[in-house]
Design a binder for these strands. Sequence first.
DNA 1: TCACAAAAGTAGATCTAGTCTAAAGTTGGA
DNA 2: TCCAACTTTAGACTAGATCTACTTTTGTGA
Lengths: 142, 142
Amino acid sequence: MRPDEAARLEEHGIKASAHRVAIASYVLHTDEHPSADDVWARVKQAFPMVSRATIYNTLNLFVEKGLLRHLVLTEGRLVFDSNVEKHHHFIDEGTGQIYDLPWDTLKVSRVKQIKGFDVRDYQVLLRGRKRGRKREKKSDSR
Amino acid sequence: MRPDEAARLEEHGIKASAHRVAIASYVLHTDEHPSADDVWARVKQAFPMVSRATIYNTLNLFVEKGLLRHLVLTEGRLVFDSNVEKHHHFIDEGTGQIYDLPWDTLKVSRVKQIKGFDVRDYQVLLRGRKRGRKREKKSDSR
DNA sequence: TCACAAAAGTAGATCTAGTCTAAAGTTGGA
DNA sequence: TCCAACTTTAGACTAGATCTACTTTTGTGA
Ligand SMILES: [Mn+2]
Ligand SMILES: [Mn+2]
Ligand SMILES: [Zn+2]
Ligand SMILES: [Zn+2]
């Protein structure tokens, strides 16, 4: 639990209520790419009085204020990403887990030369299997 | 309306009923990336007796048999793609339209060197605006 | 300290895409 | 012609997400 969580919210123009800090202290520091209901399940463990509507309201507010991104990468899973920097995604087709790949892991050439499209943003989306599978259920970086 | 549509289905191990041919003759020849309900709306114009369940059953069957791909690219839109070859996708953020980019329009380097992941498949996903906008609502290649 | 308006949070209703179920219709070979 | 397998169907059901109408909390300024 970071002492500066509330300050970070205020910096982004968000009034830092207790519920919002609770939600932030999980969702802004995980690389799990959780769904809204994943966030709810996690936050409820410590703050069982937080309602589902508040989870949705808060996550959408964080997206609007640029603290989170909304990803739709795989069937029926709308997912939140606390990594708002440019990066690529790898989806494990066995587990459904989503992994971040740093931007310079890959290089995409000729984007500028695409005719007829103004590209604002892009990423590479990869699917396959993660090898190894050590450190699997490593407890989350709260 | 192609005379060989039924043959194409049979080649893929699909018994060619009238409903299936009707659905195929739209969805296997469009580059619109339609949702299931888009397909239903279109097919109903000519074949109003076809039920929603049959649309879903048939589209899922086509995917299973390799005639179609299932894409999840953008919020709340599970979409079918009759282009089953490797290619990239550009999403117009204004209209929501999805455009195919041929595989060799772009080049992605270092995919093989990614450590710890077995990549089975990948594509580049681009967002922005399509320029020009001529030939906009061009009638579909049925 | 109190009044009170704005902001935050809430339960439950509603919406929607997609799946499932159980029954009816169709087909084609024996 | 018979019948089993296949196809199609209406509508029930599910789950994620949003909306609505209401209550609670917060903070300001008289
Ligand atoms: Mn989940
Ligand atoms: Mn649609
Ligand atoms: Zn990510
Ligand atoms: Zn495509």
